[in-house]
Design a protein around this nucleic acid. Structure first.
Lengths: 339, 339
DNA sequence: CGCGGAAACTTGATCGTTCAAAATCCCGTG
DNA sequence: CACGGGATTTTGAACGATCAAGTTTCCGCG
């Protein structure tokens, strides 16, 4: 394999200097048309590609975004993250950025790993997921002034409007509100199957159902269980046995929806409308309606926050409060269960 | 933020030269104990981290592996890939390697993207997934002599033993064989629900069932449909209606298993043993047994092939035929369906 | 005590790019 | 036709590490 051509080689062929080649690549506007075309031709002829490490060394920018992969926890909801990672990679590529993965099992490990990557000049920014109240990662990132954006809003009251804390999230309440409006077509008694109070995400999703029911002047049963198919199945089976009136069921997750659907089918109501959340393959497999998070929009929003609406370098953070986050409206996917 | 310390800074503090610091990092054996300790202390005191781009520029090694993310196709089986990516990231980190993602929608796009990354010195090796017969990617990688390993064996006859083509795969036949042996406990008539003949993976999985049945002197029904829950449900429903004798059902995928389970439940046999493949969250949610691919072992095998059993740089490929691939034995996960 | 050779350490050059500053070109004007 | 000044291009230096080729230190032995 012949040695890869460098700017120097291109310059020689095009009859210009190194720097002019560099300018054609980075600031084409300041190069005269004829010169630019000659250089571009030479680049094509030689198959020149800039050497990323050399560029990163000189500019002190790696054009790379780091993202943590959670250890596989089992359960259903990894899919949203995976789709997000994929979408992020696509969008990042479009903007001349790369996506580097890193693994860590605890927050402390993650901080250590981020430290290595940042200090080693390997990443310019980080995307963190699954933030929680008092998350040490956000504190660390802020103190080291590493640009970052969170997928998931910060649940600490102070942070939500903190313009230094960029975040993107899906509007869970809007999702369950849409689900509830749809479910009200099937009957007045729309129940909600959610998680115990206290998780920010779960409370949001419950709120969308509650407020929509109130606005419609209706009331409905509210059940809570941990996020587990068997527990959901048992809870819904119990409610149906007690003769609770349920015309439709809005759920905080697809796991819960699957459990609910199975219980309904057991009780001879396989057509009971059950609406899940996350639109996982499992819901699809069973033909259940679900709320689709649109991870592609979340990814686009994350990059907009980090790089501005059209830039292709990680920019300093905006200082206006409203501009520091993006809230994506999810979408109801309607399906009819087979069988 | 103060400027990051360099080898020069460490050298000054430790009272040695640049190169000695470099040696402590890369070839500690040739540095005298006392000196090494002084340098290590200085590294700790200053919080020194080597600058990856500078190192990559000089050594012409990025210590990075590229992996392609498929566009999210819906369906169930993305999970195996996602777990593999995660496991790969963890193992790679342990060996001082990084994992860089790239996205592409077609094989041609993928080749173009790999070209950018390789020529830009961003990656030393590639992991490709979902190889097929006459895959242009393997041809391209070979012609450019880019080190690579495939997750999934090459289905072209010539390539399987080609020592230049490294691959890791899961032994599908061993998986369905284990499933079949387990199913035979439930009764003699173990049926198989698979894909139409012609996909290498599917044929392998069918073979495991067939050979095990033959060895046990039993026969069983064989059904084939495309990988779709509704189609599987219909096929199994039809078979049961016709009164086909089925004591248990081994399936080529979890999608098929879910469809089969639903049909069995419809027919009043919710306890019919149904065994899927891939051990996805969906199978877990329904309490179905499934074959677990052990993506962690696959990832470890991929790195062993690329880097040798213990090295931490991408090594030239082995030339012995047997050493060019790893076949991982999957594991049956037994569950009892609730309900 | 000096010698030889291995072990330990240091010095100069280099990887490919971009920054900063200096040099040259070009064109309208006086 | 020389001149000013913006537009365009070139030149030298630097980013931080490692390689290759020295130089110095150490230690056993004659």
């Amino acid at each position: 394999m012949a040695k890869a051509p460098t700017v120097e080689d291109v310059a020689r062929v095009a009859g210009v200097s190194r720097q002019t080649v560099s300018n054609v690549l980075n600031t084409p506007a300041i190069v005269r048309d004829g010169t630019r075309e000659r250089v571009e031709q030479a680049i094509r002829d030689l198959g020149y590609r800039p050497h990323t490490a050399a560029r990163a060394l000189r500019t002190r920018r790696s054009s790379t975004i780091g993202i943590h992969l959670d250890p596989y926890a089992g359960g259903i909801s990894g899919v949203v993250l995976d789709r997000f990672v994929h979408a992020l990679t696509e969008r990042a590529t479009d903007r001349g950025m790369r996506v580097l993965l890193y693994a860590a099992r605890t927050a402390d490990q993650e901080i250590a790993r981020m430290g290595d990557l940042v200090d080693g000049g390997e990443i310019d920014a980080v995307v963190i997921t699954g933030t929680f109240h008092g998350d040490p990662r956000t504190r660390w990132l802020t103190s080291r002034s590493v640009p970052f954006v969170a997928f998931g809003r910060p649940w600490g009251v102070d942070d939500v409007e903190d313009p230094a804390h960029l975040w993107v999230d899906v509007d869970g309440a809007a999702g369950t509100a849409a689900a509830t409006r749809f479910a009200l077509d099937a009957g007045d008694r729309v129940a909600f199957l959610g998680w115990p109070t206290g998780s920010g995400t779960g409370d949001e999703r419950e709120r969308g159902w509650r407020e929509t029911m109130q606005a419609a002047g209706r009331t409905g049963l509210r059940l809570t269980v941990r996020d587990d198919v068997a527990l959901a199945r048992a809870a819904v089976a119990g409610a149906l046995e007690r003769g609770e009136p349920i015309d439709a069921l809005v759920c905080a997750s697809d796991s819960l929806a699957i459990g609910a659907h199975l219980a309904a089918a057991d009780a001879g109501m396989p057509r009971l409308p059950v609406i899940g959340f996350d639109n996982t393959p499992s819901a699809e497999a069973l033909g259940l309606s679900s709320i689709e998070q649109l991870p592609e929009k979340v990814a686009a929003g994350a990059l907009d926050l980090l790089m501005g609406p059209s830039g292709n370098v990680v920019a300093p953070r905006p200082t206006t409060a409203g501009a520091a986050h993006v809230l994506v409206e999810p979408e109801l996917v309607v399906r009819t269960p087979a069988g």
